[in-house]
């Protein structure tokens, strides 16, 4: 059994080397993650933007810079043009002895209110009310952690794609037909086809988490447990791509369809109200998201139950593959491609 699985693995290695898949999947993703590192600081320090007209006295404009990013415009028309652009930015100009906050009218409430409050503070030079603050322990924005979680989840798609492309290659090259006359069974075939893809998932998740969050903040054994609990997602995606698609065009179509819940479920988990979240419980990648969420952001919530559900989902998905798609694969092998 192990020899047969080893042979399939060796064949996959040759295929991935021939097509440069390992290079492109690993290096491509890592380049993307490193690129994200340059983009993250601007998201983490998300400032209020002010579009300031030249009529605003320089000392006031300078003080505004302490509260947000200031863009300077020469004249009302340019200022108006900037405020009317698609993003939410407040304009400030000085006219007839008073400051005017120029707004498009559909901005978010904080964009409408903050510039005025800040102007008040700058011009009156004193706090209007005395405030005391209590820290809840979160010292910075969790944007970096959320970005890492989204990247980690997409690695399951990358791993699944890896498995799927390899199965399509087997179908197109006639390998599956050849395997029909060998003693290999469907479970061995599934293990042999999944090993390399799953190793890619594990390697990429470790690398991505390390690059984005830094080794000091990661509990590697726990991360490995969470990744292992969700590996069924990658296997399911891979075999879905490999078994439904006869060629690359169909595979791309499947990837597009699968990518929607893969990226949509975590986004929905962030924005859906709690009373509707039960809808997401049906998606296996919701539990993967929740596991990473509890590992890096909501560390106050227990991780083990979520990992357990993710693992059960993984086992369930693999069982579905073995029983349902396994039959299809065996038929395909016996019937000849």
């Amino acid at each position: 059994m192990f020899r047969r699985i080893g042979n399939l693995l060796a064949k996959d290695l040759i295929y991935s080397r021939r097509e440069n898949i390992l290079v492109y999947s690993m290096i491509g993703m890592l380049v993307l993650v490193v690129g994200t590192l340059f983009f993250l600081p601007s998201l983490e320090q998300m400032d209020v933007f002010f579009a300031v007209d030249g009529s605003v006295p320089p000392e006031v404009a300078r003080q505004l810079e302490a509260y947000g990013q200031v863009e300077y415009y020469a004249g009302y028309d340019l200022l108006r043009e900037r405020v009317l652009e698609f993003d939410d930015v407040a304009g400030i100009y000085y006219y007839g002895g008073e400051y005017i906050v120029l707004l498009e009218g559909n901005e978010e409430s904080y964009v409408r209110e903050l510039p005025g409050i800040i102007l008040d503070r700058i011009l009156q030079g004193e706090d209007l009310v005395e405030l005391s603050t209590i820290s809840l322990g979160r010292e910075r924005s969790p944007v970096r952690e959320y970005t890492a979680v989204f990247f980690l989840l997409s690695m399951f798609l990358i791993g699944g794609l890896f498995i799927g492309l390899s199965i399509i290659d087997d179908r197109q090259s006639g390998t599956i037909r050849a395997l029909a006359v060998t003693p290999i069974n469907v479970v061995e075939y599934m293990i042999g086809k999944s090993v390399l893809g799953l190793l890619v998932v594990v390697a990429l998740t470790l690398a991505v988490a390390t690059i984005l969050l830094g080794p000091a903040t990661i509990n590697y054994p726990l991360l490995l447990i969470s990744v292992a609990a969700s590996l069924g997602v990658a296997i399911f995606i891979g075999f879905l791509i490999g078994l439904v698609s006869n060629n690359m065009v169909t595979a791309i179509g499947i990837v597009k369809v699968v990518a929607l819940p893969i990226s949509g479920v975590p986004v929905a988990a962030l924005f859906l109200p709690d009373r509707l979240k039960w809808v997401l419980y049906l998606f296996p990648n919701y539990w993967s998201f929740e596991a990473f969420n509890r590992m890096f952001i909501r560390t106050d919530l227990p991780l083990a139950p979520v990992n357990l559900v993710a693992a059960l989902f993984s086992l369930g998905l693999v069982a579905v593959l073995v029983s349902r798609f396994g039959r299809k694969l065996r038929l395909t092998v016996k019937g000849g491609e």
Binding site: E98, V101, N106, G116, L119, Q124, L128
Partner: peptide
């Protein structure tokens, strides 16, 4: 004129909306 908040203190700015909110 923005008259909201500010605990009755005189406000130092006013808002100009280019369009009504939809």
């Amino acid at each position: 004129w923005n008259t909201a908040g500010n605990l009755g203190q005189p406000v130092t700015y006013r808002q100009e909306l280019l369009r009504p909110a939809s």
